Lab assay of single mutants.
Amino acid sequence: ERVRARYDYEAQNEDELSFKKGDIITVLEKDDGWWKGRNGKEGLFPSNYVEELE
């Protein structure tokens, strides 16, 4: 599954994923509120910062 970033997100910890608004992220795992994904790097990000691609 792929999602698009709705906002910029700056990683707060080294296991998190940074991205810019409009970036496409491949979702690897979904957990409550935090998803694991890849966009060149791999890490956790808040699920409310992304939207599913149509």
Score class of each variant (00 low, 15 high):
Glu51Ser: 08
Lys30Glu: 03
Gly37Tyr: 00
Leu28Ser: 04
Ala5Thr: 04
Glu1Ile: 14
Arg6Tyr: 05
Asp23Arg: 00
Asn48Asp: 13
Leu28Lys: 03
Glu51Gly: 07
Leu17Phe: 03
Glu1Asn: 12
Asp31Gly: 15
Lys20Tyr: 06
Leu17Gln: 00
Glu51Ala: 07
Glu1Cys: 14
Gln12Cys: 10
Arg6His: 05
Lys41Thr: 11
Lys30Gln: 08
Gly40Phe: 09
Glu52Pro: 15
Val50Ile: 08
Lys21Glu: 10
Gln12Thr: 11
Tyr49Pro: 03
Glu29Phe: 14
Phe19Lys: 02
Glu10Phe: 14
Lys21Arg: 10
Lys20Gly: 06
Gly37Asp: 01
Ile24Lys: 03
Leu44Pro: 01
Glu10Pro: 04
Glu42Gly: 05
Glu1Met: 14
Asp23Lys: 02
Glu52Arg: 13
Leu17Cys: 02
Leu28Trp: 05
Asn39Ile: 14
Gly22Cys: 07
Tyr9Glu: 01
Arg4Ser: 07
Asp23Ala: 07
Lys36Cys: 12
Lys36Met: 09
Trp35Phe: 07
Ala11Asp: 01
Asn48Val: 11
Lys20Ile: 07
Asp15Ser: 14
Gly22Asn: 07
Asn13His: 11
Tyr49Phe: 13
Ala11Arg: 02
Pro46Tyr: 05
Tyr9Pro: 00
Val50His: 04
Arg38Ser: 13
Lys41Leu: 08
Val3Asp: 05
Leu53Asn: 06
Asp15Val: 09
Asn13Cys: 12
Asn48Pro: 06
Phe45Cys: 03
Ser18Phe: 03
Gly33Pro: 10
Glu1Ala: 10
Phe19Trp: 00
Val27Met: 03
Tyr49Asp: 02
Arg6Met: 13
Ser47Thr: 07
Ser47Ile: 07
Ser47Tyr: 10
Phe19Thr: 00
Thr26Gln: 11
Lys36Ala: 04
Thr26Tyr: 13
Gly22Ala: 02
Tyr49Ile: 06
Gly37Ala: 00
Asp8Trp: 04
Asp15Gly: 15
Lys36Pro: 00
Ala5Trp: 02
Leu53Gln: 06
Lys41Asn: 10
Val3His: 08
Arg2Glu: 14
Tyr49Arg: 07
Glu29Ala: 13
Glu14Arg: 09
Asp32Ile: 12
Asn48Ile: 13
Ala5Asn: 03
Glu16Ile: 01
Val50Glu: 00
Gly40Ala: 09
Phe19Asp: 00
Ile25Ala: 04
Asn39Phe: 15
Leu17Val: 05
Arg4Asp: 06
Tyr7Met: 13
Asp23Thr: 06
Arg2Thr: 13
Glu42Trp: 07
Glu16His: 09
Glu52Leu: 13
Val27Lys: 03
Arg38Pro: 02
Ile25Tyr: 01
Asp23Glu: 10
Lys41Met: 08
Trp34Pro: 03
Gly43Trp: 00
Arg2Tyr: 15
Asp8Arg: 02
Gly33Asn: 13
Trp35Ile: 08
Glu10Leu: 11
Gln12Ser: 09
Val50Pro: 01
Asn13Phe: 08
Glu1Val: 13
Val50Lys: 05
Ala11Phe: 03
Asn48Cys: 15
Gln12Trp: 05
Phe45Leu: 02
Arg6Asp: 05
Lys41Phe: 09
Asp8Phe: 01
Ile24Trp: 09
Glu10Lys: 11
Asn48Trp: 15
Leu17Asn: 03
Ser18Gly: 06
Arg4Thr: 09
Glu42Ile: 15
Glu10Tyr: 14
Trp34Met: 12
Ser47Leu: 05
Asp23Phe: 03
Ile25Asp: 00
Leu17Met: 09
Glu42Arg: 04
Asn13Gly: 11
Tyr9Gln: 01
Arg38Tyr: 15
Ile25Pro: 00
Asp23Gln: 07
Asn13Tyr: 08
Lys36His: 08
Lys30Ala: 05
Tyr9His: 06
Gly22Val: 02
Glu52Asn: 11
Gly43Met: 04
Asp15Lys: 15
Trp35Met: 08
Lys20Glu: 06
Asn13Glu: 08
Leu44Asn: 08
Ala5Gly: 06
Phe19Cys: 00
Glu52Ala: 15
Arg2Lys: 14
Asp32Trp: 10
Glu42Asn: 07
Tyr49Thr: 07
Gly33Lys: 14
Lys30Leu: 05
Glu51Arg: 05
Arg38Lys: 13
Asn48Glu: 14
Gly22Asp: 07
Leu28Ile: 13
Leu44Val: 12
Asp23Met: 06
Glu51Gln: 10
Phe45Asn: 00
Glu10Cys: 14
Asp31Ile: 15
Arg38Ala: 10
Tyr9Leu: 01
Glu16Thr: 06
Glu42Ser: 10
Lys20Pro: 02
Trp34Ser: 04
Glu1Leu: 14
Asp31Met: 15
Phe45Ser: 02
Thr26Cys: 12
Glu1His: 15
Glu54Pro: 13
Lys21Asn: 04
Asp8Thr: 08
Gly33Tyr: 15
Phe19Glu: 03
Val50Trp: 03
Gly33His: 14
Ser47Met: 09
Arg4Gly: 04
Gly22Tyr: 05
Pro46Asp: 07
Glu42Leu: 08
Leu44His: 11
Arg2Gly: 06
Ser18Val: 02
Lys20His: 09
Arg4Gln: 08
Lys20Gln: 08
Arg2Phe: 14
Glu16Ala: 02
Gly43Pro: 01
Leu44Thr: 10
Arg4Glu: 07
Pro46Arg: 08
Glu51Leu: 06
Ile24Gln: 04
Lys36Tyr: 14
Lys36Glu: 03
Gly33Phe: 15
Glu42Lys: 05
Ala11Ile: 03
Lys41Trp: 07
Lys20Trp: 05
Asp8Tyr: 00
Gly40Leu: 08
Glu29Arg: 11
Arg38Val: 11
Gly43Cys: 03
Asp31Leu: 15
Asp32Phe: 11
Asn39Glu: 04
Asn13Gln: 08
Glu1Asp: 10
Tyr9Thr: 01
Lys41Glu: 10
Leu17Ser: 02
Lys21Gly: 06
Arg2Cys: 15
Tyr9Ser: 02
Gly37Leu: 00
Val50Gln: 02
Glu54Cys: 12
Arg38Gly: 06
Asp32Glu: 14
Gly37His: 01
Asp31His: 15
Tyr7Cys: 15
Tyr49Val: 07
Thr26Pro: 03
Arg4Cys: 09
Leu53Met: 13
Ser47Pro: 15
Glu51Phe: 06
Glu1Lys: 14
Lys20Thr: 09
Phe19Asn: 01
Glu14Phe: 09
Arg6Asn: 07
Val3Asn: 06
Arg2Asp: 11
Asp32Thr: 12
Glu16Tyr: 07
Gly43Val: 02
Asp8Asn: 10
Asn39Trp: 08
Leu44Trp: 15
Arg38Asn: 12
Val50Thr: 07
Arg6Gln: 07
Ala5Asp: 05
Thr26Ser: 08
Lys20Leu: 09
Arg6Phe: 07
Leu53Ala: 07
Ile24Asn: 01
Ser18Lys: 00
Gly33Cys: 14
Glu29Gln: 13
Asp32Gly: 15
Arg38Thr: 13
Glu10Asp: 14
Pro46Glu: 02
Glu42Tyr: 08
Trp35Asn: 03
Trp34Gly: 04
Gly22Lys: 02
Trp34Arg: 07
Gly40Thr: 11
Trp34Thr: 06
Ala5Tyr: 03
Gln12Asn: 09
Phe45Asp: 01
Gly37Met: 02
Glu14His: 10
Asp32Leu: 11
Glu42Val: 15
Leu17Ile: 13
Asn39Leu: 15
Glu54Ser: 14
Trp35His: 02
Ser18Tyr: 04
Gly40Trp: 11
Gly37Arg: 00
Tyr9Met: 03
Gln12Pro: 03
Tyr49Lys: 07
Ala5Cys: 09
Val27Asp: 01
Leu53Gly: 05
Ala11Met: 05
Asp32Ser: 13
Leu53Pro: 06
Glu1Pro: 10
Gly33Trp: 13
Glu42Ala: 09
Glu29Asp: 12
Arg4Leu: 10
Glu14Gln: 12
Arg2Val: 14
Arg2Ser: 10
Arg6Thr: 10
Lys21Ile: 09
Tyr7Gly: 06
Val27Ser: 03
Leu17Trp: 00
Ala5Val: 07
Asn39Lys: 11
Val50Tyr: 04
Arg2Ala: 11
Asn48Lys: 12
Glu16Lys: 00
